[in-house]
Every structure is written in structure tokens, then in C-alpha cells.
Design a protein around this nucleic acid. Structure first.
Lengths: 361, 361
DNA sequence: GCCGATTTTGCATACGGATGCACTTTGCTG
DNA sequence: CAGCAAAGTGCATCCGTATGCAAAATCGGC
């Protein structure tokens, strides 16, 4: 019988290994390895031969195998709850770019706001990611501790973990929300509405506290409050609830842009209100859509590129073993003034980039 | 000298290995391995002891090491050009979910529409991904061939590669664009505008051909044309160009929603036109924002979940070695009728889900 | 209680590449 | 040209897991 079929050209051949390259180049495996290892000692002559042989065989070092020895996978796990909030695609894109620039790839992981995501993260850790970035997701203190012991740095993004001292990078929630309050107060508003995100989220809580404390300092009444759960539909419902009240608020602060955009939509389409005239709306994040002509959302910016840069910096430090003293890294933003909220008489300045921002008196 | 410092509890200890677990459980490494291998032969007794020991040591199988043996990394490379077009975050999220459901993780990779992305994909292949999904990105035929020989299935998403017969999943570009043309014609429009995406893109070309052919069948004049490069700013400029013409078009077809939304913004804010009244605008994709009250974009839908399901199906088949006869998989959508374009007198039906769609007479 | 059939189990090896070590080659100085 | 330091090289070993094979244990049936 002729069970051994001749290998056709379409036969899926195994990729070339360092061994193959070494044989073709007439050197040892070590030489090949060193050729592809930054800073290893190889003569120019052998390097050339190896490179040539490698190209001929279409050799590509197997990073899985390499990671076994080096204990570095050059992958970073990124957990993000959703991608429908426009903020997070920007974050993911920046993370991918900036991590890519230092040789790391993103192993993506979407949690769907699942509170019980430990089992999934657990699986992610099997991939031996070099670090874990949790964008708006959190993990149990047990798993966090396990990561620490296992030498996997965990960094939270746009969310902080008060109980456990996990390093975190976030916008200046308290300051930003206070700015929003001050801004609306300066514009002459006296009846406020507030739309919360997820009740348990540190982000939402800090923004709520910042907003309310600032209002209190001005002697304002407590704002009306509804919860939008950081979702578009939730924010639509919350907006309806607030605007349907007997004496609806004149000014609305939403804990993120995603919800602020929902509020604008509902105010316009269901209540006939023009944001910036009959109703002021302020958001938080400054996503790209906020600048669209049809929204012109006034919002406190979270400079994604800076925040990600800091995050990547923390990853690098942690990987280099540098001890990180400071735990929570707060990145300042600006209150970007557009048209969705009434403008105060004073305090608006124009940046060199042509953006209008508000400075407290 | 006391060079050997006592290990503090905060010392970053190496994660437990199968060896450690075996020792604690009093069995061999093989037993541990088999316990964590689906369908391997282990007695219930030893399995229990291993599981217990594993839990005690917080053992997690090292997938890197496993992939060395099995030649499976359980990672799929996903290349996407941008995340600012709202369509792609939806795609990435679905891919992550549906691949996750069958045990695969997404190694993300953002190409920025870079035409020369071979070097980057090349790097991605070092990670020995089990498959490569190219969402709106393409790779050279040389690299495609290399992947095929290396046994790495490549699947294109929402983009096809005419020259090389790379398997692809896409919406029904020709049919969808023709539907848009027929719909606008049926609504009584006679002067058309067309906004192209990236000139080289198969997606844009097919939609352009479908649109123009259908118009020709109706005996319409050639539409005015501008190129928006699939970007928001590009589409804004293109819209300005078309609407500034001496006799501007009455109806605009944009090759995706991202650009259609830009067109709506420009029409409203710069030309004072109300979409659906003085100007009809039709898009392609049916992204979430298209349904927002402020846009109400009429558009041909690309059912992301179905498209991704098919894509994942192709990945599974390819990995199982099933030969895939059909190369291009076209997924049907519907023309979702909203308010951004004038409605024809006939043909609009309501789906059980409460969505209005248009059926050609 | 014995024997053959079936599971379990451990041993040894393989996967692909990095690296300490000892050895060889090269380069440079006097 | 000798002598020595520095650079380059190959060998052997290791990383953490899967798996074929043969030995051992278990099982069932008489």
C-alpha cells in the first residue's frame, strides 16, 4: 500500500526553527539565538549568514518558546468592560499603540461589566501576561494579591480600588466634577441634576462627591439625582426621570460623556429643549463625538494619551522592578467649553490649540 | 557576609509549576498534566489530590509551555485599522466574545490604515497565533502565502482580497448599495451624490459599483462623487464639496455610517439642511449611533454578530482542517429605514422587532 | 483466588529557544 | 612576533508542559 502520500506544495509544513537555520547557515543554535537577541555577542560575519539563512527559511523566532526561558511574554492583558462607551476604544487604541512602541502586545479581554470576572482573569493569567491593565474593571483582592506574589503588575485605569492599594491611573475626578459645578454655578444656574454611573464605581462616586461638595460650598440646594449605570439607555431613562419632575433641573452633570450624549438626545428629542439654552449639560471625558457640531458638549477632559502614557510608564517601572511609591496617579484635565451648557460671563480662555477652556476665577 | 537575604513574604516568588504540584500531591508530573488535559486518563482519586494540591499552590498551567507541545496557542490575532469608526469596536467586542466562547483570546493589533503592515503582522506571527483575522486590513500576497504554508489560517473581515483567494466574510456590499440606490430613486430623488471610502478598498469599490449600477439601471445621471477616505474629517470635507456645488445633490449615499454621520453633521450645521427633508442621506453598517434620536440614519445593516459568527466558524473549520470550499462569505443585511432619507410611498415593512425595513417592489 | 483486559501511572523525551561556561578566535599592544 | 584581553562560539542545560510507551495497578468474571 502507498500510505505515504507525497508532500504537496500545499502541505502545511512546520515553520522553520532555529535548528533549521543553524544547519543551513552552518553554525550552532546558539549563534542563531544570539543573532536574534538584542545585545548578544555575535560577529558580523556569522550574523550575516544567519540572517540570510533565516530569510531563506522564513524563520521567525517562536515567542512562546522564548518566553519560557526569559519569563517574559511581551504581552499585556487589557481588561475593559465595554467598547460601546466611546471613551474605551480610544483607550484601547492608545494602549495598543504605546505598548506596541515598547514591544508589547495587547491581549484583549472584555468583561461586560461582569462583577465576577475573576475566573476570566484567572484564565488570562495562564497566558503569563507580563502585566494586567484593568480599564474600568476590578478584581478581587485575593486575585490581586496573587498577581502581586506572582510578579504580575496590575494597574487600574480610570477606576481605583480603595481597599487594596492597587496602583491606578485616573483623571482628576474630584477636581473635574467640582469644576463642572463651579462652571454651572458661575453661569447662573441654581437648580441642578446629577446622573450617576455605576453606584459601586469609584469613578462615579468621586465625581459625585466632587460635584456635590462644590455645590454645597456655593450654598446650592442638593441636586436631583438619577442613576444611568454608565449606559446609554440607562442615561436616557435617568434623563427622562429628571426632566419629568415638577420642577426639573436647569443644569445637568453626567458622570461621563457617553451618558451626557444620551441626555442631550433625550432633552432634544423628547423634551424639545436645546442644550445650552433651556438646559445646560456637562459631561466628563471629552470623547471625540463630544466635539461634533451637533453635540458641542461642554465636558471635563480626560487626556487619554497622557493617561495611557502614565499607565505604560507604570508598567515599565514595575517590569524593571522599580519600586513605585505613589499609588494613585491623577491626571489633570481641563473643562472644555463648548455649547451644551450656558457660558459664564467670565473665566473662559482660549488655548493655543484653539480650544476654549474655563479657569476658575 | 550575609549575602543570602531571607525571603520576605513580598518577595516575588515564581509561580507554581506542575512539578511543584506533583511533589505536593505525591504523584508524577504526568498525572498533573493529565488532570488539566481534557479527556486524559486519570483516576478520580489522583485527580482529586492533584486538584487540591494545585489549589493550595495556586497553580495555573503555563499556556506558553503548553503551546510549545501542542502547537496551539489559543490566541487569534485580530488586526483592525482604527477604532474610531464605531463599527469596529462592535466587531472587536463580538470577536472577543465569540472567540472567547470557544476558548480563544484576542491578540489585538491596530494598523492605523497603514498600507505597509506586513512588518507588524510579521511580528504578530511570532506569537504563533492560531489564526489571523484582518478586519479592514490586508496583507501582501507573499505574507498570505507564508501564513498558508505555515498553517495559520487568515480570514478577512469586511474587506476582500480579489487577487489572492483569502477567505473573507463581508456584508452584501453590492446588494446593499443597490438597495440604497433603489430606495432613493423610489423616494423620487433624481440627483445623487456619492461619498467613497478608501479608493483601493474592495469594500468601497463594491459599494460604489452597486450604487452606480443600480442608478444606471434606473436611467439616472451619474452621481456626483467625492472621497471621504472612511474618516470623519474626510467625509466632512467631501460633504462640503458636494453640497457646495452649483446644483448640489438631493440624495447622498455614503459608503459607511461613520461618514454618513459626518455628512449629517455638515449638512445640518454648515448648510442648514435637515436630513430627511431637504437632503436624503443613506449610510452603510447600522452602527449603534445611527439609531440615536438625533441621527435616525437610514442605512443598510451589517449584522455584526452574524458576520462574526461566520468568521469564527471559518476559524474553527480551518483549525479542524476542514477544507473550506467557498471563499467569500456574503452576509445579507437589511435596509433599515429611519428618518435621514425621504421615505418612498411603498415598500416599507415593519419587522417583528419593531424595526422598519425596505423591501424592493 | 486467578487470569486476561482495561485503566492508571511514571519515565523519558520532545517542543523551540536562551544562556552560563569553557574554549577558540580575534584584535591590540609593546 | 609574543602575549594578553576581549570577543565569538559551541556544548549542555534549562524553561514548563504534553505524550508515546511500557510497567503497574485495577477490574471483572469465572
Amino acid at each position: 500500500m502507498e500510505s505515504v502520500a507525497p508532500r504537496t506544495s500545499s502541505a502545511r509544513s512546520r515553520p522553520a526553527t532555529a535548528e533549521d537555520v543553524a544547519r543551513l547557515a552552518g553554525v550552532s543554535r546558539s549563534a542563531v539565538s544570539r543573532t536574534f537577541t538584542e545585545g548578544a555577542s555575535v560577529s558580523e560575519a556569522t550574523r550575516q549568514r544567519v540572517v540570510e539563512a533565516a530569510r531563506a527559511l522564513k524563520y521567525r523566532p517562536n515567542l512562546m518558546a522564548r518566553s519560557l526561558m526569559t519569563n517574559r511574554s511581551f504581552m499585556v492583558g487589557v481588561a475593559v468592560s465595554h467598547l460601546d462607551n466611546q471613551f474605551y476604544p480610544e483607550v484601547v487604541e492608545q494602549l495598543s499603540d504605546q505598548l506596541g512602541a515598547i514591544g508589547y502586545r495587547v491581549l484583549l479581554f472584555i468583561t461586560h461589566g461582569n462583577t465576577e470576572l475573576d475566573p476570566m482573569l484567572d484564565e488570562l493569567l495562564r497566558y503569563r501576561v507580563d502585566a494586567l491593565i484593568l480599564a474600568s474593571s476590578s478584581l478581587s483582592s485575593a486575585l490581586a494579591e496573587e498577581c502581586r506574589q506572582g510578579g504580575v503588575p496590575v494597574i487600574m485605569f480610570n477606576n481605583t480600588d480603595l481597599a487594596n492599594r492597587t496602583p491606578a491611573v485616573a483623571g482628576d475626578n474630584t477636581h473635574g466634577a467640582a469644576m463642572a459645578a463651579d462652571f454651572l454655578w458661575a453661569a447662573g444656574h441654581r437648580r441642578f441634576g446629577f446622573i450617576a454611573g455605576i453606584e459601586e464605581s469609584s469613578t462615579s462616586r468621586e465625581r459625585e462627591a466632587g460635584f456635590k461638595d462644590a455645590l454645597r460650598r456655593h450654598g446650592a440646594d442638593r441636586p436631583m439625582r438619577a442613576c444611568g449605570h454608565f449606559t446609554f439607555d440607562g442615561a436616557m431613562a435617568a434623563t427622562r426621570q429628571l426632566l419629568s419632575a415638577p420642577t426639573p433641573p436647569e443644569a445637568l452633570f453626567c458622570t461621563n460623556d457617553h451618558m451626557a450624549l444620551a441626555a442631550i438626545e433625550v432633552a432634544r428629542s423628547e423634551f424639545g429643549l436645546t442644550p445650552g439654552r433651556e438646559l445646560s449639560i456637562v459631561g466628563f471625558d471629552d470623547v471625540a463625538i463630544a466635539a461634533w457640531p451637533g453635540f458641542q458638549l461642554t465636558t471635563y477632559s480626560q487626556p487619554v494619551a497622557h493617561m495611557v502614557a502614565r499607565t505604560v510608564g507604570l508598567v515599565k517601572d514595575a517590569l524593571a522592578g522599580t519600586k513605585d511609591g505613589q499609588c494613585h496617579h491623577i491626571i489633570q484635565g481641563d473643562l472644555i467649553v463648548r455649547a451644551s451648557a450656558r457660558r459664564p460671563a467670565t473665566g473662559i480662555v482660549r488655548t493655543p490649540e484653539g480650544q476654549e477652556i474655563w479657569r476658575r476665577a
